[in-house]
């Protein structure tokens, strides 16, 4: 039934392009387009991304344009479908993009914090006060109290908000789809800020989120949702580029990222928005461990 689709899309697209004067086709290198995965408040991300576009444009002497992504998978698809040239992705989506690109997509750089990334399990203050959950060193301690707690992951496609916390729960012998009170929740929009809000407001007793966003959150939110568990370290976010920009521009782009300097006020603003002190060069193989977790995770939550 999907057969008529490409034909139809072409038709629709022809009729659309016939409407107006044909804009000149831009060669790929005349302009760089990028996106970032929407793991946080979209307005905040857009603002930081526009700043980044300005700085990169100046450093590379090429116009750089930011395109907002609707969701995580969209960011991956945009890169593979030639709608953007490079993109800021999470650990799982970095592997997805490398796989989708089939040899044409490579990691450029990562943050200093991403090679030692963590997930926090945070609990609602009142649930902690009521003794329903207490800070723990070993996630296995959660098994005994899980039945009384509602739990939320972040976005289903998030590494620090879903993939890794689920992985560590499974390792601790806890099936997140059955162990908690009710079905475990996900945040369909808003990413980690939504998870924190959900736990702080009591909409969920327990939640798993990105440690960097938590550390940078408002004190009142943190007080309302204290940390009860910190996961072991893993690899997370990366800047990923498609080969179509050419080896030369890719190398310069990598240099532009790793050259962002906290001593320059304008560049510090960007590093602050990305919650790091600097970007480091990185290779695809560093994300192999995440791919292994992604592929070996029991997929019951998709059935």
């Amino acid at each position: 039934m999907l057969r008529p689709l490409p034909a139809f899309a072409t038709l629709a697209v022809w009729s659309l392009s016939a409407c107006g004067p044909q804009p000149a086709a831009t060669p790929a290198a005349a302009e760089l387009r990028f996106s970032v995965l929407p793991d946080f408040n979209k307005d905040t991300l857009a603002e930081a991304s526009r700043q980044l576009a300005a700085v990169l444009g100046r450093k590379l002497a090429v116009p750089v344009r930011y395109e907002a992504a609707n969701d995580y998978a969209h960011a991956v698809n945009m890169l593979a479908a030639n709608k953007v040239d490079f993109v800021w992705l999470g650990g799982k989506t970095t592997c997805d993009a490398i796989d989708a690109g089939a040899g044409t997509v490579h990691v450029l750089a990562t943050r200093d914090i991403d090679l030692h990334f963590k997930t926090y399990f945070v609990a609602n203050r009142e649930a902690v006060a009521a003794g329903k959950v207490k800070p723990m060193q070993d996630l296995r301690e959660l098994a005994a109290v899980a039945k009384d707690l509602t739990f939320t992951f972040g976005d289903k496609n998030s590494t620090s908000g879903h993939l890794m916390p689920r992985h560590f729960l499974v390792l601790a012998g806890i099936d997140p789809d059955r162990a908690f009170r009710g079905a475990c929740g996900y945040q369909a929009a808003g990413g980690h800020s939504a998870t924190l809000k959900a736990v702080a407001s009591g909409a969920a007793d327990l939640g798993a989120l990105n440690f960097a966003y938590y550390d940078a959150a408002k004190a009142e939110d943190k007080a309302a949702a204290p940390i009860v568990y910190t996961t072991p370290e893993y690899v997370d976010y990366a800047w990923v580029a498609h080969d179509r920009i050419g080896a030369d521009l890719a190398a310069r782009l990598r240099g532009a990222f790793t050259g962002l300097d906290a001593a320059v006020a304008e560049e510090k603003a960007i590093l602050d928005a990305w919650k790091c002190r600097k970007f480091e060069p990185a290779q695809d193989s560093q994300w192999d461990s995440i791919r292994k977790v992604r592929d070996s995770l029991p997929k019951g939550f998709l059935r």
Partner: peptide
Amino acid sequence: VLAFFTGV
């Protein structure tokens, strides 16, 4: 699907 063709 259409975004593959006409973008975002």
